[in-house]
Amino acid sequence: MTFFYFVSSGAVTFAPCLFLWRLTPLADSPFLYRFLTVGAIYIITQFSKFLLIATFFPEYDILTHNFVFIQEFFKCTMYIVELIGMEIALLYFSHKFDYRVLTVGSSWATCQAIASKLLPLWFGGRSYEFSWDVIVLALRSNVELVLMLSTVYLIFIIINSKRYANQSLYSISLLFLITYYPLLISYIGIIKSVSQLMLLIAEFLFSTSVAAGTYLLYSRSLIKV
């Protein structure tokens, strides 16, 4: 890997987020303040998540490559904290402006990309050796972006359950799927030792189906988001 790959994979990771702010209706609104607000909420959420993990699972070892069901289950469950964080962000912006789902979703995904992808890309870029992993990582962040937007819309439905009373059950079940699908992914990845590329494809299929489901919900409700 060289500087060139770092630029390429960085572009793949961050350009879609940038496009979201620039080429969607978000472009017509000032985004920096909103992005920083969501970023602050993201940071607080992550801290509380780590505190919870450290409190309840002090022996949790990130580096083990074994599949321990309890650990993985707990890790996935901790995603609920993030869902709560997204909900807080949505509530913070409620009734202030349009497109808050898009704002919160894109900002949250960008924060996550910066927090979880920038360093691996950085070290991947430093490495002299070429590896597909870095490019797979960059593509994964795009998949996560799609998933994140769907997640935020689903939370939006639950918050406004009065308006979407008939949809909240669907959205809760979809959120449940989103919360626990990493369990399946890590099971396949560790036990069956499937390659990173196949895992990416699996994640892509899952995300697109969740996004399609969410879009169905969205198109049924004729109310403007």
Binding site: Y5, S8, A15, F19, L23, Y128, E129, F130, S131
Partner: peptide
């Protein structure tokens, strides 16, 4: 000792990335 790609691969990758981002954008 590192595994590296030939320069033509760099170019190909760059073009593919541009195409991909163009489609998304």
């Amino acid at each position: 000792v590192s595994k590296v790609k030939p320069p033509i691969f760099d170019l190909m990758l760059f073009l593919v990335v541009l195409l991909y981002l163009g489609v998304i954008g």
